[in-house]
Design a protein around this nucleic acid. Structure first.
Lengths: 201, 201
DNA sequence: GCCCACATTGAACGCTCGTGCAATGATTTG
DNA sequence: CAAATCATTGCACGAGCGTTCAATGTGGGC
């Protein structure tokens, strides 16, 4: 064909994996319906036909992406929940895709949230048992609340960096919000104790 | 010019508004790229050409939707932040669209988040002033944290209803999470006071 | 050597998309 | 009544979509 220079220079990653990773990035950025197979193929440096050969159809490609991200989450992040900035930075291109997974309805997204909630629940029960956490409700519900709240930075990443980011510091504003975040979880937000369900308006 | 008597004028506005409202529902469900002008036109009972006549092009339709939702939020909800279940129920079909607006990058989404943060900041400053809220950091950052956390139920609505929903109660699980939520904001989550930034792992 | 399995391509298919446009119908205006 | 205005339609166009497929390159096992 064209380049017979180095046989392994294109093979820095297996072709199938490269297509899938490009797809994760593009799907994360523009959504499943917002990206064409052709665009992914072009960015991966292959033909559209090869995408179909490896993944069957466009939906097969999506499933491969889901699977990959699910495995990524299972492996790397038992705690998307705790340390936002570090984890979000490590997520890299997977971040936006993961955000879409938990945001838009899908079985794979449900599986990820289930896993995060389960892990959080274990953490809650252990910490309540050893006395480092107060029991503020049924563990499954507490875990759900903590998980959803902890996912917020991932889902609203751009706004946090936009509104808390400091041109002085290279950090995207994550360090800045750590202080109030820690205060709330440590001692709460309200000075009064008469509090039922949500803030009184 | 402005003789407000003809029933046709009302019908007139009705058609344009109906198309736009259908678009909000469908865009919210499947995303902007995931819905065709034809599908929206069909569901609104009009021809695709009429959609172009009223909104110029597909992106004009999106801008009309953005504008509508922005006005909706400005008017109805000063506090998406506080009482989740009530507000989310009142949002109706606007909810998913609003979730996409704040989740996917756009100027309109930025505007909405800016507004919510600004309102929250006013609330924080007022409550710190009258002593019902502790000062846990700089008000802009505290407002940002509260806002992002309070948006989580909107963005993860399906998971909350899925995991906290009780077949016994008609409520979708929102009442169930109110208790731990209130406890956290009232007195915090941790029993110990030595706490820096995020939980130690 | 040959052969077979596989990666990969490029062209083509049918379809749907967003959009433009002339025509039609209804309503207001002069 | 005639003219004008505007909502509304049906149709057609070109582009781009997902997908198919026969052909071609490629490399390891016999």
């Amino acid at each position: 064909m064209c380049s017979a220079l180095a046989p392994t220079i294109v093979d820095d990653q297996k072709t199938r994996a490269r297509i899938r990773d490009v797809a994760i990035t593009r799907f994360g950025a523009d959504g499943f319906a917002g990206v064409s197979v052709r665009a992914i193929a072009a960015e991966a440096g292959v033909s559209p036909g090869l995408v179909m050969h490896h993944f069957g159809d466009k939906n097969g490609l999506r499933e491969a992406c889901d699977e990959r991200v699910l495995a990524f989450v299972r492996a790397k992040i038992s705690g998307v929940l705790t340390d936002s900035s570090q984890i979000i930075a490590e997520l890299g291109a997977v971040g936006p895709y993961l955000a879409r997974m938990v945001t838009e309805p899908s079985a794979a997204g449900d599986a990820i949230v289930d896993q995060l909630v389960a892990e959080t629940q274990e953490m809650v029960e252990a910490r309540v048992a050893d006395g480092t956490m107060r029991a503020v409700g049924e563990p499954p519900l507490v875990a759900l609340v903590i998980t959803t709240h902890s996912l917020a930075p991932l889902l609203l990443r751009s706004h946090i960096e936009r509104l808390a980011g400091d041109p002085e510091r290279s950090d995207g504003g994550w360090a800045a919000i750590a202080a109030p975040l820690g205060q709330i979880y440590a001692r709460g937000l309200f000075a009064t104790t008469g509090f039922n369900d949500g803030m009184p308006s």
